[in-house]
Amino acid sequence: MLRNHVQQTMGAAGRRARTGWILLVGIIGILLALAVSLVYGTKDLQLSTVWQALFAYDPDIKAHQIVQDIRFPRSLAAALIGAYLALSGAIMQALTRNPLAEPSLLGVSHGAAFALVVTIAFVPDISIVGATVSSMTGAGLAVLFVFVLASASNGNVTPVKLSLAGIATGMFLSSLTSSIALHFDVSKEMGFWYAGGLANMDWRAVKVLAVAGLFGILIVTALARALTLLHLGADVTKGLGIHVQAVKTLAVLAVLLLTGSSVAVSGAIGFVGLVVPHISRMLVGLNYRFSLPVSAVLGSLLLVLADVGARMINPPFETPVGVVTALIGVPFFLYLVRNEKGRTA
């Protein structure tokens, strides 16, 4: 496999240099993608107009308003969410030692939807912050539930078992959600949310993301080395004197913050967390100190581009960005399933 090949042929110094280059190229890529995302839209703007709107904002010019109030928060949110989802996916894959672990496959978005519909049904005039907190809690509980399930069950947690647990949890929660939505007549609102959209991003969403992400990323940074060892197996970890339970708890907390905030503001955007960590590991190897930053940058890049794509597929209508990521992610998933020997069996 490419991953092993990379690890064997490169020393630590070589990998560090390579990671540096990839990060540099990735960040330049994100900046370019952001520029495209700001320029392109129902109303195409000049790059100079965008520049002025950002650095010499004039509230009387409509184009400036579009950039400041609509496109900029949206693009920033896409960049943040992409990074968060990719990091969450990487952490989940390390925690479960499972190549197919991914937030959206583990019932996370269904958990958030369930919490959200309960909230809307019983407190119709809830504030946006309240709704965010409730869906974050729901997402968190769903992840926690699937993890507990996985660790409490007999035998090894194989990829197929974890995926099935996620699916079953998701289906269970979604029937509850639909029942409540039917009874209180809020189905279509929920439908929009399920599809995963960046259309309604505003500065509040960006703030929620920034706050949750700050803590999440701090935790992730502290855990990078421990995660690498966890990925290699619990025996190794114990031998090296790492407190497995503490690491796992902190890692789950990071997933809650990162996925929870993303799902809360944007709905279900799948497969970013599956695809990106795999590609990062292929590029820079298993060591999470290198692969985590690469995952974050590539995740950002992917989602900003997917968002531009979502606007370009069928203008002036927007395709939900979750659909675009699924169209990229599903073939990748199938590729993994067909090529992982032994590990999926």
Binding site: P320, G322, L327
Partner: peptide
């Protein structure tokens, strides 16, 4: 697993 993947992909198209 292929079924699960296909399911996810079709659901995405379905919701759109």
């Amino acid at each position: 697993l292929v079924g699960i993947g296909i399911n996810a992909g079709l659901s995405a198209i379905l919701i759109t």
